[in-house]
């Protein structure tokens, strides 16, 4: 495997990897949805209208369904959570494959390798990408775990701090205005958490590079070493261009939110109908998901470029 030059890293030239991520996500989501679907099927599937009942105005069947006192809801909820957790872990495989596809090519070293040259590079073979995904699996899970923990801690601190500030100002401003102040303060902590999430992505990208480099050199590298090195690399990248990096993430995030809005509008319009309307909704929703996956791949490509540049600059300086 040979690392791409920064200018060669483009998500749009890696459609197979993007589709791989999307495909695994769809399958994982279907598995996660199975308990709820099974519960609904068991409860309402025999009705001539099926689960269209759950979408009726006034919600008689929906309320009856979620209000029932047997163990259906708790079993479904717990099973769903477990499956979601497993699915989240599983997603690190295609993620690693995507990251490797963005960063590496199967081309052998070439003599002509000039910045700006338009020579086409071969995409990483799918098998190599999957192998890369296996190699990076454990470190990526580590990032997922620590990253989620860090974001959670920041948000928790934010909630506690903003609540305390709101509570302190309640006698002076009244509880409605104090609540607005609470939200205002919380926004800063959410922004900090978002920055941490950006840093986590940079670490993921750096992990893919480190593992790929080691693999290409037929060297072995420990998990903690990879994570430590990748973290340094990520923060070096972030130090060099915080605003640019955060902006690159932000506009894609905003676009993703817009796509979700489109999906919600489609659901509102097509909602509880079956037949062609349901098929159309499936298509629209999956286009939304694919679009979000593509946006994420685009962001990861940008992140890979930045990490590559920062690494190259660091090596030059050394």
């Amino acid at each position: 495997m040979r690392p791409f030059k920064p200018f060669e890293i483009r998500a749009r030239t890696r459609p197979a990897a993007v589709l791989l991520v999307y495909g695994v996500e769809v399958v994982s989501a279907l598995v996660v949805a199975t308990p709820a679907h099974a519960w609904a099927q068991r409860a309402w599937g025999a009705h001539p209208e099926g689960d269209a009942l759950l979408f009726r105005a006034s919600g008689r069947e929906l309320v009856a369904w979620v209000s029932q006192t047997d163990t259906g809801m708790s079993v479904t909820a717990r099973t769903t959570i477990v499956l979601f957790f497993l699915g989240a872990l599983l997603m690190q495989l295609p993620l690693g494959a995507l990251l490797a596809s963005l960063a590496f090519s199967n081309d052998p070293p070439a003599d002509r390798d000039v910045e700006g040259a338009s020579g086409r590079r071969r995409q990483l073979r799918l098998v190599d990408a999957l192998r890369a995904g296996v190699v990076t699996f454990v470190p990526l899970i580590g990032v997922l775990a620590f990253g989620t923990l860090a974001v959670g801690i920041v948000v928790a601190i934010g909630v506690a701090t903003s609540s305390a500030i709101g509570h302190a100002f309640t006698p002076r401003f009244g509880d409605a205005r104090a609540f607005q102040l609470t939200l205002f303060v919380l926004v800063f902590f959410v922004a900090a958490a978002a920055t941490l999430a950006v840093a986590a992505d940079l670490i993921r990208v750096a992990i893919a590079r480190e593992c790929g480099m080691a693999w290409g050199a037929h060297a072995r590298i420990g998990v903690w070493t990879v994570m430590r090195t990748a973290t340094k690399s990520a923060f070096r990248t972030l130090r060099g261009s915080v605003a640019r990096t955060v902006f690159a993430w932000s506009w894609r995030f905003a676009l993703g939110v817009g796509l979700v809005g489109v999906g919600a509008s489609a659901a509102l319009a097509l909602g509880g109908r079956g037949g062609g309307a349901l098929v159309a909704l499936v298509v629209i929703h999956q286009v939304v998901i694919l679009g979000r996956v593509a946006l994420r791949a685009s962001w990861l490509a940008d992140a890979t470029r930045q990490v590559a540049r920062a690494t190259d600059q660091s090596e030059i300086q050394e």
Binding site: A29, A33, A36, H37, A40, Q41, G274, L278
Partner: peptide, 16 residues
């Protein structure tokens, strides 16, 4: 019966 395709669609989408 009518099955539960809408639930499957919604649950899958939200899981994604």
């Amino acid at each position: 019966g009518g099955g539960a395709p809408r639930t499957l669609e919604r649950a899958t989408y939200w899981a994604e």
